[in-house]
Amino acid sequence: MALHTVEFDIKLNTGTITIDVPTHTGVVGSSDMEVLMEPKDLEGGVSVRIVTPVTGFDDLWKRVLDKFVNETALSDTRIEINDNNATPAVVLLRLRQAFSQATTD
């Protein structure tokens, strides 16, 4: 009944990009999500925390985040997500938005 929390770390050997500023993107509307992205010293890693009403998709979350971290070569970043039934495509879109906000502001 209570909300489901998924937590994991991703570490790439090729991760070199860091973000400049903490950023917040998105609204927890139906089928949507919000994300906080903050620079944090994680020895080159990315740590992720997802809070969602949905269970049974932990592997899928991991795959989407892996894809995002791989394509951006992100490192030393803390990602926190409040999800409300967003599809993987929406998740990836919001992550990319947050990343572009955090690196261009």
């Binding site: 917040h24 609204v27 906080l36 409040n82």
Partner: peptide, 20 residues
């Protein structure tokens, strides 16, 4: 603001999505 992470404790207990 969202970085203060003040979300509803009630929604969490009910299993409903929360916002920062």
């Amino acid at each position: 603001g969202p970085f203060d992470r003040l979300s509803s404790p009630h929604l969490e207990l009910l299993g409903d999505a929360v916002a920062f």
